[in-house]
Amino acid sequence: MRIIVLMKEVPDTYGERKLNLETGLAERGASEAVLDEIGERALELALTQAASLEDAEITVVSMAPETATATLRKALAMGADKLVHIADENLVGADLGLTAEVLAAAIRRTGFDLVIAGNLSTDGYGGVLPAMIAELLGVPYASALTTVDISADRVSGTREADGGVMTVAAPLPAVISITERFPAGRFPNFKGIMAAKKKPVETLTAADLEIDPEGLETPRSIMLAVSERPARSAGTKIVDEGDAGEKLAEFLIQNRLA
């Protein structure tokens, strides 16, 4: 079974994240780059279920700047078999539509039975790419899964929908996305790190995928303006001396909040 896990390099959310006020792009230098946590959970799912699947091969596909290779290698150290990295300067600032086209083309080129994505990336916060990719690939999409069961020709799982909980299923090939209720990714061990050095890494450009990032026939979403909100500052801080509850009640009432 050919499993593709979609992973992304993101600015570490534990640090201060910055947008460049001129270009509107994320300032990559402003914070440390890490693998998106939800992508690690998706890979963990693939690694766990691969054990019970015949000839499982796990390929990580990512569209990210060239400098992301080091971050992405962690996925190989965790246990993925192969990395397909689409790195192209012309794709910097790609909108959702272009990103979906690129990833769908790379997935098709690699060949797949199941694509596993995160439901939401921590920087894009789009939560739409897997749906777009499923549409472009012409396959079923089961989103926001909190449990997953993969068999030779079918994937099923629990989906926490807006009004309740459902069980969903799809024949393969298919795309699924998972939520952060899945276990965190494993830490690479020494053996994994050594093995990763010998694993294949394929680097692709948009041209390799026959995609023209500057093509004008498809509408693209562009940023018109970016502004920074003034940072919030701290107000009153009191230490409880046995009457903090009373004081807080006073504050709420004075401000008409209670």
Partner: peptide, 19 residues
């Protein structure tokens, strides 16, 4: 919403609309 995003993603990809 979860459903809304699924629909929006597929619809935008199908009709090549900016999203």
């Amino acid at each position: 919403s979860i459903d809304g995003r699924d629909v929006a993603g597929r619809f935008a990809a199908r009709t090549r609309s900016a999203l």
